[in-house]
Design a protein around this nucleic acid. Sequence first.
DNA 1: TAGATTGTTAATCGATTAACAATC
DNA 2: TAGATTGTTAATCGATTAACAATC
Lengths: 210, 210
Amino acid sequence: VEKSNKKISGEVIKRLPRYYRYLGDLKKSGLTKISSTELSRRMNVTPSQIRQDLNCFGGFGQQGYGYNIENLYNSIGKILGLDSTVDTVIIGAGNLGSALANYKGFESRGFKLIGIFDTSSEKIGTIIADCEVLPLQDLEDFCKKNMPKIAMITVPKGAASEVAEYAAKCGIKGFLNFTYTDVTVPEGVAVENMHISDHLMMLSYKTQNM
Amino acid sequence: VEKSNKKISGEVIKRLPRYYRYLGDLKKSGLTKISSTELSRRMNVTPSQIRQDLNCFGGFGQQGYGYNIENLYNSIGKILGLDSTVDTVIIGAGNLGSALANYKGFESRGFKLIGIFDTSSEKIGTIIADCEVLPLQDLEDFCKKNMPKIAMITVPKGAASEVAEYAAKCGIKGFLNFTYTDVTVPEGVAVENMHISDHLMMLSYKTQNM
DNA sequence: TAGATTGTTAATCGATTAACAATC
DNA sequence: TAGATTGTTAATCGATTAACAATC
C-alpha cells in the first residue's frame, strides 16, 4: 500500500485512524471536498503534517482543489485494511470482555467478533453477544477453521503473557491488550496496549500540573 | 513536584505509569535496588532514557549503587498524584460503564469510584458496583459536595461533547474519553482518549505490514 | 489565465542516545 | 581505594513545520 519502500513511521500510523474518523464525519455531513488547511483547522494540527502524512501513501489530493472526501476516506480505510471485514476474538469473558463483545461500534467499522474464549467452567457455554463462550483450549482448532486476525485480551493480569503466547502460536497476528501488564509476542505479531490505569495516572498528573 | 520550572514533555509523562508498573512488580518480587541498565533491559528501552526521564523530577538514584526500588516507586507515585486517593465518576451506565465500574483494579491503584451518572430513566436508581446510578443533572450538586477529579465518559458518541462541556462546568478536571469522537474541553482541563477502535485499526494496519 | 492548493524539499525543532565527569 | 553507576552535557537522530515550485 505504501508509496515507496520507505518505512512509514509509527507516529504517522497512529494518526491515520483519526483522519479516518474526521473524514467519516465530513462524509456524513454531506461535504465532498476539503483542503489540508480546513482539515487542519478542524483537527487542530498543521496543514503540513496532513500533507506529509498522506503523501507517505500516495498523492490523494489535487492542486488547486484539495482532497475528495469520499475518495480519501476510502483510501485510508484501505490502507488500514478496513476494505474487508477483520475477524476478531475476545479472550476473557469477564466484565470488560462482555462489555466489548456487546459494543456494536466495532462491527460498523469493519471488525467482526467471531469468538469468545475463557477458562472458567462457569462461563464456558454461556452466550454473549450471539457468541457461545468456548474453552480456551479450543482456540487452536478454532483458528485453523476461522483464521481470526486479532484478539482482545481481557483476562486477569497474571494470565496475560501465557494467553498471548498461546494465541500467537494459534496464529493470532495482533493483540489488543487490556491487562495491567505488558505482553511479549513473537516476531511478526503486533500488540497495542489499552492500559486504562496508565491513562488514569496521566490524567491524575495533568490535573495537578495544569 | 518538578525539579526546575522547565516544562516536562508529554513523552516523559506518558512513560511514568509504565515505570511505576515495572517498579511495582520489582517491589513485589522482593528486590530492593535496580540500575538503569538492568531496568532498561527489562523494559526494552535505553538506560539513557530512564536516567533522563527520572532526572526531570529529581535525583532519585545514587552513583555506584542504582535506584532504591521502593523509594523510586513511591516517588513516581507521588509525582503522578497517587499518594492520596483520586476520586472519579463514570458518566454513561451502559455496558462499558458498568464493566469499568466493576473493575477492581483501579481502586488498588488509588482511584476510587464515587458516582455513576446516566440520563436514562431505566438506569437511574439501579445499583452498579455499590453505587446508585444518579441522573446526570445531579452531577453539579454532586461535584459541589464530593469534588471528584476525573470522569470516565462512556456515553454514545453523539452525546460526548455536550456531556464533557457540562461536566467541565461542574468542576471535573480530567476526562477519560471512551467514545468514538474527540471531545473539546476548556483551558485547564485534561483529556485522555481511549479510542479502542483507533487501536484496532492500527492493529489491522500492522498485521498487514509486518 | 489567475487563483488555489497540493506534493515535496529544506529548515527547524525536539526527543533520544551517547559519552563522560562526578561521586557514592 | 577501585568499581560501579548516576546525573548531565553534547551529539545524533527523527519528526514537525515552513516554504515554494509544480500543477490543477
